[in-house]
């Protein structure tokens, strides 16, 4: 199963105001691949994932153009009912704060089994059997007790495991993980990342991993796409990106990771912030914050170009040796 996003362009419309959230996203996640989408908040990461799930409310959202394919299924052209049948069944999603994203008044067992009963037509007992298996898969052995627990009776890490159990219950082909570790302690982060990698191997799911944290992304990804102001500015394998980042934005992001070896030096920060989706600068959207920007950057928007096999970036000066 492969997920392909082609030229996805999405706006939020309110009255006569328009916020251009996604400006032509191209992205391919192969079978069994963990692909990370990295960017600052407000760059369009969550809009992308919500759009794949078909959960963007319209209005206020308008999909201007673009297509999303899960193999040969064109997700955006499906009826609402067909989209619903794909959600949870073929594509599943894990969210940032398990405490908020689990229903506080339903037992974990009910929250896992309901999709099994709905999508796979299982009986209640069969679904409970299956749920026990799934709990073991996500490292929540102890079984029955967890099924009969309410979310508040579980610890933060257990909640996130339960959340993942809910997501993978119907053996989805594709998983979207929207910052699944951000709300957790560092030690738990590690465990959840391992679990996601482990599941990829067991279930050979393609995974779109959304994060703003490059350190987390470094541990888990096969490929990485860097998103800025609703556009992908660099796409490459993980090793390539960390060894030879091309786009100035990616380079600055990498430099801003605190590092024990750089002790005593000032931490690099990127001045300014992600532009407001209502007021995206002309030309290259990054030019107001870019240390290498020249006149052309203010006028002409750079195209995404492949500079090495499997490594593309969108910058006028990539490959010119100007960016150091």
């Amino acid at each position: 199963m492969e997920l392909t996003i082609k030229d996805l362009d999405v706006s939020f419309i309110q009255g006569d105001r328009e916020a251009h959230a996604l400006r032509g996203i191209n992205l391919t996640v192969g079978k069994g691949e963990i692909h990370s989408l990295v960017g600052e908040s407000g760059s369009g990461k969550t809009v992308t994932s919500t759009c794949i799930m078909g959960l963007l409310p319209s209005p206020p959202v308008r999909i201007n153009k673009g297509e999303i394919f899960l193999d040969d299924i064109n997700l955006l052209s499906l009826s609402e009912e067909d989209q619903r049948k794909i959600r949870g069944m073929k594509i599943a999603m894990v969210f940032q704060e398990p405490a908020k994203y689990l229903n506080p008044t339903l037992k974990i067992g009910v929250q896992i089994t309901e999709s099994l009963i709905l999508h796979l037509g299982m009986s209640k007992t069969a679904a409970e059997e299956k749920a026990l298996d799934i709990l073991t898969t996500v490292g929540l052995g102890g079984g029955k007790r967890i099924l009969h627990s309410y979310p508040h009776e579980l610890s933060g890490g257990m909640k996130q495991r339960a959340m993942i159990a809910i997501a993978i219950s119907c053996n989805p082909l594709f998983l979207i993980a929207d910052e699944p570790t951000t709300a957790l302690d560092v030690t738990l982060q590690e465990q959840i990342l391992e679990l996601i990698m482990d599941l990829r191997n067991k279930l050979s799911m393609g995974t779109l991993f959304i994060s703003h944290d490059l350190r987390v992304v470094h541990d888990i990804s096969d490929r990485i796409s860097v998103i800025y102001a609703g556009k992908i500015v660099e796409n490459s394998s993980k090793t390539e990106l960390f060894a030879h980042p091309m786009h100035p934005y990616s380079r600055l992001l990498l430099k801003s990771i605190p590092d024990a070896e750089k002790r005593g030096t000032r931490l690099v920060t990127i001045p300014g912030k992600v532009p407001d989706a209502e007021n995206i600068p002309p030309g290259c959207a990054f030019h107001p914050r870019c240390p290498f920007a020249e006149d052309i950057c203010k006028i002409e928007e750079p195209e995404m170009k492949e500079y090495q096999e499997g490594h593309s970036a969108a910058c006028h000066f990539c490959g010119t040796g100007k960016i150091q």
Binding site: L55, R84, I86, F95, Y101, S115, L118, H119, A167
Partner: peptide, 21 residues
């Protein structure tokens, strides 16, 4: 609330989302 988004992401029907969740 957020858990409603989870319910939607699970592909539950609107009826289940409203009445069960």
């Amino acid at each position: 609330k957020e858990y409603i988004i989870t319910a939607r992401a699970k592909g539950l029907t609107e009826k289940m989302i409203h009445y069960k969740h």
